[in-house]
Design a protein around this nucleic acid. Sequence first.
DNA 1: CTGTGTGCAAACACTTTGCAGGTGT
DNA 2: ACACCTGCAAAGTGTTTGCACACAG
Lengths: 144, 144
Amino acid sequence: MTSKEILSAHSLRNTNSRSDVLEVFLQKNSALSQPELEKEMHECDRVTIYRTLATFLDKGILHKVLDDAGAMKYALCSHIHCSKHYHSHDHVHFKCNLCAKTICLENLHIPPIKMPNTFLVQEVNLLIQGVCDTCGAAKTELIA
Amino acid sequence: MTSKEILSAHSLRNTNSRSDVLEVFLQKNSALSQPELEKEMHECDRVTIYRTLATFLDKGILHKVLDDAGAMKYALCSHIHCSKHYHSHDHVHFKCNLCAKTICLENLHIPPIKMPNTFLVQEVNLLIQGVCDTCGAAKTELIA
DNA sequence: CTGTGTGCAAACACTTTGCAGGTGT
DNA sequence: ACACCTGCAAAGTGTTTGCACACAG
């Protein structure tokens, strides 16, 4: 799935900023905040990135990822079926406390929570923080 | 548990700012951000609130609550046992999309997630968003 | 009295808005 | 051609830091 294909699939104009933002997401394969994207893209205005993120969120190309560090993060929706009104991203998010990278664990679904039925559930977000496999391996090598 | 007792239990000096912050948490019984606290407290500097939150977080009086709206929230730890290095707050957080209030569901524990053991899990946060019982009841009345 | 807490000023970081001009279709 | 996208400027909001004074123990 190329950036061009993603854009046309959501009937969005194919502009440099938009395809560049998508390229970064496709390449990094992790959740990113606007500041993080800005570091990767030197030919695009800060505001344009914010507006692009808002557009992608609206179209169901990206979903929000919670973070404990103040900046909102976003990640690609794996399913084409996501749209403004139907987001299916009930997977777990993992943030490494060492490399600060946040990833989607697509095949790790959030177990159902039995809420009292006086509550209406609309969205569930699960963030696990710890040390990722890459950083963990690097640390083990250092000790050995 | 009064604010004075909480402070002395964690060997913190009993100052107006600190007890006032605690009073608000005890009274509101929900997760609060610094801006929200500031609205409730008129005799305390903005910076003091930030520093008080940091101190309480460090001592294990408060724990972080994730939010999707940009501002970090905090809530009281229910267990006296919480300290800097041992936080036990594996409960679910619920944010109402109508009244914007975030509460701790202390008796609703996060189910265990079986992560691949190449990952080290240090913290788990679960945020459910929807409509709370109070707002839901109000809405039902309107329709009826 | 002494170390810690507080207030003020200022800076920093993230995000949004308005408007003029440029670009994709 | 027209609607939509972009860049720049500016402002709004959340958070941190430095320093001098004030206060709890």
